[in-house]
Nucleic acid binder design. Structure first.
Length: 405
RNA sequence: GGGCAGGUGGCAGAGCGGUCAAUUGCACGUGGCUGUAGACCACGCGCCUUUAUGGCUACGGGGGUUCGAAUCCCUCCCUGCCCA
């Protein structure tokens, strides 16, 4: 029986950290690796040439968004995700599980999946309760009902539907349909949601297997199960056991975290998940978090931060993030990040890019996105090199010493 | 010279007797963004301070009416258009 992907571990560096390779039908992902997010089959504002230049090896698109537009069948008609966007490399699709959160509990709030400091929710409650926007998601036993933010139409997504759509889209690695919960939910809700996610995982897997008949396109697609459990050790461990025992090709670690406990949450999970399968830490991508993810056994990462921050004018430098529009850089003729080899840094100054950003020239966000992707992709591949050279801790220490901000 | 329309915060442009330190947009300033609802959002943007249901100075200049004026009257200055 042909395997969709194979994962080989080149080197085990510590109890959890490892260097490996994920072989996909569209090429190899050397891990640890950062995967660029291209939600609607586009890494916003960047051409595939720019992505290649930035060192991007794989892209993750989104099932929900491609289903809404142009429609998963339309993607299929165009030859699938790779053909459609002319990206020959490895791809993934998220199942739409994140949208259960971002369009549901997270919609209209400024709650992100990462909880920072203490929750201040109860304090601001008294304000105008009626101002809270109606959610666009309704969750039930079998799936989630989405109300389109584009035209108000209603769409019901079940695990089976999500996988079916992901088969149509045709990415190399697809994810089980899960419920990403808000970090502000109570433990009892997290437990309830976890049961749902596990049930949906099983159904995602069963549906996927049922479609992997010999010679079918689905046969070449790998399915990753997603571990949830929020910030709770017992739930995370329980989830890792449940999902880890199912016959997935790899695993995603999803859900909400407490900024302070992200690494422990990841460790709880990775100590339980089968060692011989790849682990993807969903939606994590700030430098500090990537170090924690890598040393605690995650192989791949994806995050919108590089492109979203870039589009909004925030740029990574080795000394920390800077906002390129700030007066401080108005006459700064240095590159975004000193010594950076990316296209933006080799060709343009902070002053110029700041001017582009402020004058709303689209080149500004493009250059910042290119730079940020280059920065993060290369940061993770530098971690890989450091793991191979047995100096990961020194590398991390040196980086974070300068990066502090 | 005559007639008409105007002069409001960096700009545009509301307000036309009190609730106006003055709507709104732009510009400007700062902050936020972690499986992309968002090339976006939030806050600030006269000065001062014990940051406050606070004080002060302000709507071309000057004078007046009124308890109270960006808002009404007089006058001066300036701008645009039209007629001589």
């Amino acid at each position: 029986m042909k395997k969709s992907i194979t994962f080989t571990i080149e080197k085990k560096v510590s109890a959890l950290a490892r260097v490996g390779k994920i072989h996909t039908p569209h090429g190899i992902i050397e891990t640890p690796a950062f995967i660029a997010v291209g939600t609607k089959a586009s890494v916003r504002s960047l051409t595939i040439e720019m992505l290649r230049d930035a060192g991007v090896k794989a892209i993750m698109a989104n099932t929900y968004h491609l289903y809404m537009q142009p429609g998963d069948l339309k993607v299929k008609v165009q030859g699938g995700l790779h053909k459609m966007m002319n990206w020959p490399g490895p791809t993934m699709t998220d199942s739409g599980g994140f949208q259960v959160f971002s369009l549901g509990a997270g919609y209209g709030t400024n709650i992100s999946k990462i909880l920072k400091n203490a929750p201040i929710v109860p304090l601001i409650k008294e304000k105008d309760e009626e101002e809270i926007k109606p959610k666009l998601v309704e969750i039930d036993y079998d799936g989630a009902t989405f109300k389109s933010s584009m035209d108000g139409s209603i769409h019901y997504i079940t695990p089976e539907r999500s996988i079916e759509m992901q088969h149509n889209i045709g990415a190399d690695i697809i994810f089980a349909f899960d419920e990403c919960t808000s970090p502000t939910e109570s433990k009892s809700y997290q437990r309830e949601a976890l049961e749902r996610t596990h049930r949906w995982a099983k159904r995602s897997l069963e549906y996927h297997k049922s479609k992997q008949v010999k010679g079918s396109p689905a046969e070449k697609q790998a399915l990753f199960g997603i571990v949830q459990g929020g910030r709770y050790e017992d739930l995370r461990k329980e989830s890792a056991k449940a999902i880890g025992n199912m016959d997935f090709d790899g695993f995603g670690i999803g859900g909400s975290f407490d900024k302070e406990d992200l690494h422990t949450a990841v460790r709880w999970v990775n100590e339980i998940l089968p060692e011989d399968k790849p682990r993807h830490l969903l939606g994590i991508g700030e430098p500090e978090d990537l170090f924690l993810g890598v040393e605690n056994g995650c192989d791949t990462f994806d995050c919108v931060a590089p492109t979203r921050l870039g589009r909004h004018g925030t740029v990574y430098t080795r000394e920390g993030k800077i906002h390129i529009g700030n007066v401080l850089y108005r006459e700064d003729l240095r590159p975004l990040d000193l010594g950076c080899e990316c296209y933006a840094c080799k060709n343009h100054s902070r002053a110029y890019i700041g001017h582009l950003y402020k004058s709303r020239e689209m080149l500004g966000p493009m250059l910042c996105s290119v730079h940020n992707l280059y920065f993060i992709v290369n940061l993770v591949s530098a971690m890989r090199k450091a793991l191979l050279a047995d100096n990961f801790q020194e590398f991390k220490f040196d980086f974070l010493k300068k990066y502090k901000k």
